[in-house]
C-alpha cells in the first residue's frame, strides 16, 4: 500500500497510550490487516475523543504526547492505523517496539521536542489542523486556517531508508 504522509490531524492529549487501547487483544484473532479496520482506538478513553467519530475517520496524522504505543509487541497497532489511512504519528516519544514497527511497515513515527508538540496542540485549540511531512527535507508543515508553522525533525538514516524502501522486509530482502 502506498504510504501518504499528510492530511487532517487528530490530537490525542495523553501520554502512555498503550497498544491495548489502540487495538484490544480480543481482535488479535484476525489474520488480515483489513479485518482490524473498524476497531481503531476502540478502548481509548479521552475527553472529547470518539473512536467512531468523523474526526478519527478523516484523520491521516496522529499527534500525541510521551511513550506512545507502549505495551505489547503487537504489530496490529501500526496496522490498524495503516488500514485506516494514518501513516504518520508525531509524538514526544515512543515505546521502542511500536516505533520500530511503524518504520518496519514503511510508516513514520516522528519524534518532536515537547515545545514543538505543545505548539502543535496550541494550533489544535484554534481549529482543525492539517499536517504535511517532507521526509527528505525533514520538515513538518502544520496549517490551521491562515496560520502555518514549520518544524524540523530528526530521523535516523536507517529509518529513512526503511520508509524509502517501503519497509524492513523489502530492505532486508534486497540486502541479506
Amino acid at each position: 500500500m502506498e504510504k501518504i504522509f499528510k492530511g487532517a490531524a487528530i490530537f490525542l492529549d495523553r501520554s502512555d497510550i498503550n497498544t491495548d487501547e489502540i487495538i484490544p487483544a480480543k481482535y488479535l484473532t484476525e489474520v488480515t490487516k483489513e479485518a482490524l479496520k473498524p476497531y481503531l482506538l476502540e478502548d481509548l478513553k479521552l475527553d472529547g475523543f470518539d473512536p467512531k467519530g468523523e474526526k478519527l475517520k478523516n484523520a491521516r496524522v496522529v499527534v500525541s504526547r510521551q511513550n506512545f504505543g507502549c505495551g505489547s509487541s503487537r504489530e496490529h497497532a501500526p496496522w490498524v492505523f495503516e488500514v485506516n489511512g494514518v501513516h504518520t504519528i508525531i509524538a514526544e516519544s515512543y515505546a521502542r517496539i511500536f516505533r520500530q514497527n511503524m518504520f518496519n511497515g514503511g510508516m513514520l513515527a516522528i519524534e518532536l521536542p515537547k515545545a514543538d508538540i505543545d505548539a502543535l496542540f496550541a494550533m489544535d485549540a484554534e481549529g482543525d489542523v492539517s499536517i504535511a511531512v517532507d521526509v527528505d527535507a525533514q520538515v513538518i508543515t502544520a496549517r490551521c486556517g491562515a496560520d502555518e508553522r514549520k518544524f524540523n525533525f530528526a530521523i535516523s538514516e536507517f529509518d529513512k531508508a526503511l520508509v524509502k524502501a517501503g519497509g524492513w522486509v523489502e530492505f532486508a530482502d534486497a540486502r541479506y
Binding site: S73, I97, Q100, N104, G167, V169, D173, Y176
Partner: peptide, 18 residues
C-alpha cells in the same frame, strides 16, 4: 527482545534483526 511481526518475518526468512 520482543519484536513486531515484520521483524519476526525477516527473522524467519533471513535470521537477522536490526
Amino acid at each position: 527482545a520482543g519484536v513486531g511481526t515484520t521483524d519476526l518475518e525477516v527473522g524467519i526468512l533471513k535470521g537477522v534483526c536490526a
